[in-house]
Design a protein around this nucleic acid. Sequence first.
DNA 1: AGCAAGATCGGT
DNA 2: CCGATCTTGCTG
Length: 170
Amino acid sequence: MTPIRLSKEFFKQNALDLAPQLLGKYIVKNTDGKIEKFMITETEAYCGEEDLACHASKGRTKRTEVMYEEGGKVYTYIIYGIHWMLNVVCGAKNNPQAVLIRSIDEVNGPGRVGKRLNIDKSFYGTDLCSSKIIWIEELDNQTPKCTYSKRIGIDYAGEIWKNKLWRFSL
DNA sequence: AGCAAGATCGGT
DNA sequence: CCGATCTTGCTG
């Protein structure tokens, strides 16, 4: 089975559809010709301006503007001054959504994912459909069975949004 | 210009 | 449970 890079069409899905489908897919990194692949094992969906846990709930800012682009770009930001978060922008243009990559293979936790993949500001806005540095592949088009739970670390988002089962795990 | 909080983690 | 560490968005 030949691995296939995920297409723009795939990333144009809404976050709630994309987040579970990213499980079992592979993040591929090309570091000076050295290829590494990591299976995605946990994701979270962040769903537009009305989702108070989503950074886009603040509206269009310098930080969130990449989420307003068509799906398929990378959204990175630093949190607590220490950890780089890796997100996949998804959905249609001007519909700001993203999927947070929370875990890969044996690397649990989004901060550790960012560290393992050497994610930083330079990845902000990278196009996963054309980049030679980072992209996502599938070996088959199966979506593995996953479990659903509440998103982590968003208690500030209020009862409605913090209780959504928008975290997906293998 | 200053401030408070954050999609976390590792060490007490 | 607390500190790290710095960007961001909000206030004035």
